[in-house]
Amino acid sequence: MRGFAVMGILLLNIIGFSMPGAAYVNPAAWGGTDPVNIGVWATNFVLFDGKMRGLFSVLFGASMLLVIQRAQASGQSARSVHLNRMAWLFVIGAAHYIILWWGDILVPYAICGTLALFFIHKDIKQLVRWAIILFSLYFMITGLVLGGSWWQSIQGLAPGADAETIESTGQMLGTFGKPGSDEIASDLALYRGGWPTIFADNLSTFPSSLTNALLLFTLDTLGMMLLGMAMLKSGFILGLWAPAIYAKVAIRAFAIGFPPMIALAVWVIASGYDTMITFGAFFTFSFPFRVVLTVGWAAALLWIIVRHREHAVIGRVAAAGRAAFSNYLGTTVVMTFIFYGWGLGLYGEVNRITAMLFVVAALTMMLLWSKPWLERFRFGPAEWLWRSLARRSLQPMRLR
């Protein structure tokens, strides 16, 4: 499951690696609006966007609870073990953000993982109830942000608007992915430059990124983690349910989630990629269906895994999942080298369909290296580092 999730995340992260961040929200901002490239955007928006990160968050919550349960069973202080792991995850995530890439998810995971400690003794129904509460709060907050932004855009574009309102509205729309904005030009100049400039910018934006994570993404991510904890306690995520039940859950979730997502994609395209409509579809309107489809993907993948446990491809994906931390960080190193100015400098030079070729190459590498490595070593390199730091001693690496 973790292997499928870490591979799926790259389908979306590749946009953040290869082109201005505005393209992640608005397909018209960069990457091409011809039928082929918009087809790539629509496919990712409907099938994968938010769902793979959601799946990874679900799995993080489940594995976190599993680690806590094992610590308790061995007589260790589960609280101490967990908080130490989250503290070092925060440090690694901060270094990942500042040194390499602004799209880090490890810092929000460390924050949410710490908060999740308060929920470990909740039963399944309580965990699901709290997840729904957090999802509702997220939807309400993003709805309020969207409503306020929509009203500001109306005021800023109205005849007779004062210069200050027009300027602030332009800046707001630029951050939401408005094509041709100064933000896009600045983004291109930054990431086509050298590493010291990128490092300095990442360092300066880290505090605001941390604030955003606390104010917004904590609700979404923590809710998914609580779902993962409930799925672990129910046996769902361990593959203990009958394949027919997984199939039924997946079919129902897809039937509920896919039609509205398709409708939102059509609305965005029909609007001519209106900035506010696109922003609303991405952040707010799609959110309830992203949650449903995350559960659907979990069920569908478990149906595949339960039915084909011994298949060679499943074994390779499982190895990629056991080295998910290494694959996640390694992907950042490789992709920033390919696209940023300190490496090959292809930033902003590829469209969406071409970017997918880099995804295929990266996923192939994940499947090729992970299994042979884990046949010789206990952990992936990043997993070993995290484990050694958290346990305050070098962990045995080689298999006997």
Score class of each variant (00 low, 15 high):
8 G>H: 04
11 L>H: 02
12 L>N: 08
14 I>S: 02
15 I>D: 09
16 G>F: 11
18 S>M: 14
18 S>C: 12
19 M>L: 11
19 M>A: 13
25 V>S: 07
27 P>G: 10
27 P>L: 11
29 A>E: 09
33 T>W: 06
37 N>F: 09
39 G>R: 07
40 V>S: 09
42 A>S: 14
45 F>C: 04
52 M>N: 05
56 F>P: 07
56 F>I: 07
62 A>G: 09
64 M>L: 14
64 M>Y: 11
68 I>V: 13
68 I>Y: 15
69 Q>S: 13
72 Q>E: 15
74 S>Q: 14
77 S>L: 08
83 L>Q: 12
84 N>T: 12
85 R>A: 07
85 R>E: 10
88 W>Y: 15
90 F>K: 03
93 G>H: 08
96 H>W: 03
97 Y>Q: 08
100 L>F: 15
100 L>D: 06
104 D>M: 07
104 D>L: 06
105 I>S: 12
112 C>M: 12
119 F>A: 15
119 F>R: 09
123 D>L: 06
128 V>A: 13
129 R>L: 13
132 I>R: 12
136 S>M: 10
136 S>R: 05
139 F>P: 02
144 L>W: 10
146 L>Q: 11
150 W>P: 00
153 S>D: 07
156 G>A: 10
163 A>L: 10
167 E>L: 13
173 L>S: 06
180 G>W: 05
183 E>Q: 15
186 S>D: 14
195 W>F: 10
196 P>Y: 04
198 I>Y: 00
214 L>T: 03
215 L>S: 04
220 D>H: 11
230 A>M: 04
230 A>H: 05
230 A>Y: 01
236 F>L: 10
236 F>E: 06
240 L>C: 05
252 R>P: 00
255 A>E: 01
255 A>V: 03
260 P>W: 08
261 M>L: 15
261 M>H: 09
265 A>P: 14
266 V>N: 02
266 V>M: 11
271 S>Y: 08
273 Y>V: 08
274 D>H: 11
278 T>L: 05
278 T>Q: 07
280 G>C: 09
282 F>L: 03
282 F>V: 03
284 T>S: 10
287 F>P: 00
294 T>W: 09
295 V>M: 12
299 A>D: 07
301 L>E: 10
304 I>T: 08
310 E>N: 13
313 V>K: 03
319 A>H: 09
321 G>P: 06
333 V>A: 14
337 F>H: 07
338 I>L: 14
341 G>W: 13
343 G>S: 04
344 L>D: 01
345 G>E: 06
349 E>T: 11
352 R>N: 11
355 A>I: 01
356 M>C: 08
357 L>K: 04
361 A>S: 03
365 M>N: 03
365 M>P: 00
374 L>P: 02
375 E>N: 13
378 R>K: 10
381 P>F: 06
384 W>M: 04
385 L>K: 04
394 L>G: 00
395 Q>G: 07
399 L>I: 14
399 L>H: 10
